[in-house]
Deep mutational scan, measured.
Amino acid sequence: KYLVLALYDYQEKSPREVTMKKGDILTLLNSTNKDWWKVEVNGRQGFVPAAYVKYL
């Protein structure tokens, strides 16, 4: 498993997404889509914009 760092705040806009705050450390679950990565944060799984996170 990889960890990624939230570069920006992101507010979920659909039930498939998750909210994150700048500085959050997220567990990367799937990065096959170049635009949306599946992550786990605070016990929830969902998608965030790939451009908003970077590998640690």
Rank of each mutant, 00 (worst) to 15 (best):
L28W: 02
K38I: 14
P15K: 10
V18D: 00
G46C: 02
I25P: 02
A51C: 12
W37M: 05
W36N: 02
W37A: 05
L3S: 08
K34N: 11
K38Y: 15
E17K: 05
N42D: 13
F47P: 00
Y8C: 12
L29P: 00
F47N: 04
K54L: 14
P15T: 11
D9V: 02
A51K: 14
G46F: 05
S14A: 09
T27S: 10
W36Q: 03
K38C: 12
Y52F: 13
K1E: 10
S31Y: 09
W37C: 06
K13G: 08
A6E: 01
Q45M: 11
D24H: 05
K21I: 09
E17L: 06
E12R: 13
A6W: 04
L56I: 13
K1N: 13
V4S: 03
P15C: 10
N33C: 10
K21F: 11
K38V: 13
Q11T: 15
D24I: 04
Y8L: 11
Y2L: 14
Y55R: 14
K54A: 15
K21H: 11
G23Q: 02
K13M: 13
Y2K: 12
Y55W: 12
A6G: 03
Y10C: 02
G23E: 02
V39S: 00
K13C: 10
A51I: 11
R44I: 08
M20N: 00
N42F: 08
K22V: 08
E40N: 06
M20L: 09
L5H: 05
Y8W: 11
Y10T: 01
V39D: 00
V53W: 01
K13L: 10
V18R: 02
G46Y: 03
K1L: 13
Y52D: 03
T27A: 10
F47A: 02
K1H: 13
Q11K: 12
A50F: 02
D9I: 02
R16C: 15
Y2N: 12
A51H: 13
T19H: 05
R44W: 03
K38D: 04
Y10M: 01
N30H: 08
L5Y: 12
L28S: 02
Y8N: 10
V53H: 00
Y8M: 14
K21L: 08
L56V: 13
F47C: 11
F47W: 15
A51Q: 13
I25T: 07
Y8P: 01
K34R: 11
L56W: 13
K38N: 06
K1C: 12
V48P: 00
V39A: 01
N33H: 12
S31E: 10
V4P: 01
V18T: 06
P49F: 03
Y52M: 13
